[in-house]
Design a binder for these strands. Structure first.
Lengths: 243, 243
DNA sequence: CGAACGCTTGATGGCCATCAATCTCTGTGG
DNA sequence: CCACAGAGATTGATGGCCATCAAGCGTTCG
């Protein structure tokens, strides 16, 4: 029942399988996809953004700029994620969204969404659940920034990312490809890029994991999990249903 | 059209006025309210929580406990807020919710919600919007923890709280009553209680604001706003429509 | 009246930001 | 084909913000 080539369906499918009609709506979104180049600003903070996006391939980041030029990355988006859902309900978004790599995405207007809500209420519920998980991730990031030190933050973040990528088939228990720079990590974890570098070096020297040349390789994933107290239940609820 | 005595209606009303029928549904929730004592655990992390709550009076906090005994407060809930919406869609919640004061709240079951969605789709949309704003607040907290120092965090937090309280008529431009201890502030802002104390002392000595004996009094609110770069647009969208 | 809780202030130290310099790699234009 | 620029990675030195430890105070409540 699940179309393998549709990551959005993959992300939503754990919440129940879809009827033909619902599948058709999902595929309709899927076929409207376009290509956006790396560095393209999809949503600008403070500006009206009448449409959202479904991301099918590539990476994007949502962030907020500080008056002093600093940047706080709220989240990274990967294959199958919804972008800018918030900006559909409010007039303006409170953060910007920019593609990190070239991406394939389809634009979804507010009207698309509202009509979907009307004709396929179960899809609406699925969306709500996806949004809920979105918030769960934000909560975990909050905990990281508030109560974990730099190495714990890094470990937790990289493990979480791996779990999310595994849901859409882009990671194994060995590791995953990751186009993020150390600056990206720094801005997401509330650290300086210099310190990110040191933490990654320590991880390498202690045989925990290697992040190099755009690839994350686990060396001792269980030690990592223990070290930062990673509990994947908020993500694996999904995976358990998939496999 | 707005019933003055129903804070939930007050919080949702900015998104459009309600029909009689919708108002009736809201009032139905309103009349099921019960009293819970201070310190009551409404939702326990990791446990099934089949129902959510609508808070009508008093304060609550949602938080996550760390393995080392530390605590990260995710958010405080005030009059009119929805509690544990997440735990309705997932089997388990990823954080606990405990009342800080005695509270009046009504329990809302998952079935209540689903049937509301069916009969009053505009209420469903209102809820989605409320949840969206919830996330906006989480995002602001993320930015605070990631990129602001202690005094900026404090100022931003107290201003945001004031704006939220003003929406439900519990704050003026002079200040507001606030039952939070310095430990609460510390656990929300990712600081130690000792440092919270020092920051508040500095605010007092510099004539910015006074937080004492359960009351926050602004002395120079504009300087505060400038100091931490507070932008209330994500909350005031609501207030502007109310007044 | 003692205990518990929250608030307050001082002293010490560690984590991580900041500044600065070097190195690699990639792409680009002369 | 090479020189050059620019982005990202790496390492060292210095210092500041804030955690931690410790002690004393006021208030509330059983």
């Amino acid at each position: 029942m699940i179309e393998q080539g549709n990551p959005l369906a993959l992300q939503l499918s754990p919440y129940g399988s879809f009827s033909n009609r619902e599948q058709a709506v999902l595929d309709q979104f899927h076929h409207k996809q376009r290509i956006f180049p790396k560095g393209k600003e999809l949503v600008h903070e403070g500006q009206a953004a009448p449409s959202a996006y479904i991301l099918y391939e590539g990476w994007a980041s949502s962030f907020k700029l500080m008056p002093d030029g600093g940047r706080q990355i709220i989240d990274f988006s990967i294959s199958g994620d919804f972008l800018g859902l918030r900006s559909v309900f409010f007039r303006t978004s409170n953060h910007s969204i920019v593609s990190i790599t070239d991406i394939k995405a389809s634009q979804v207007t507010a009207d698309d969404l509202y009509s979907t809500f009307g004709s396929c209420p179960r899809l609406a519920t699925s969306l709500l659940r996806a949004a809920s998980m979105d918030k769960a991730i934000a909560v975990e990031r909050l905990v990281s920034l508030g109560r974990r030190n730099a190495p714990e933050r890094m470990a937790h973040f990289l493990l979480e990312l791996g779990e999310r990528l595994m849901v859409v088939g882009l990671a194994t228990e060995k590791g995953y490809d990751c186009p993020l720079s150390q600056f990206h990590l720094a801005d997401a974890l509330g650290l300086s890029a210099v310190h990110v570098n040191r933490v990654l070096r320590d991880f390498r020297e202690e045989g925990l994991l290697t992040f190099r040349a755009g690839r994350v390789v686990y060396h001792d994933i269980e030690k990592l999990v223990r070290f930062c107290g990673f509990d994947n239940s908020y993500i694996s609820q999904i995976r358990r249903l998939l496999t």
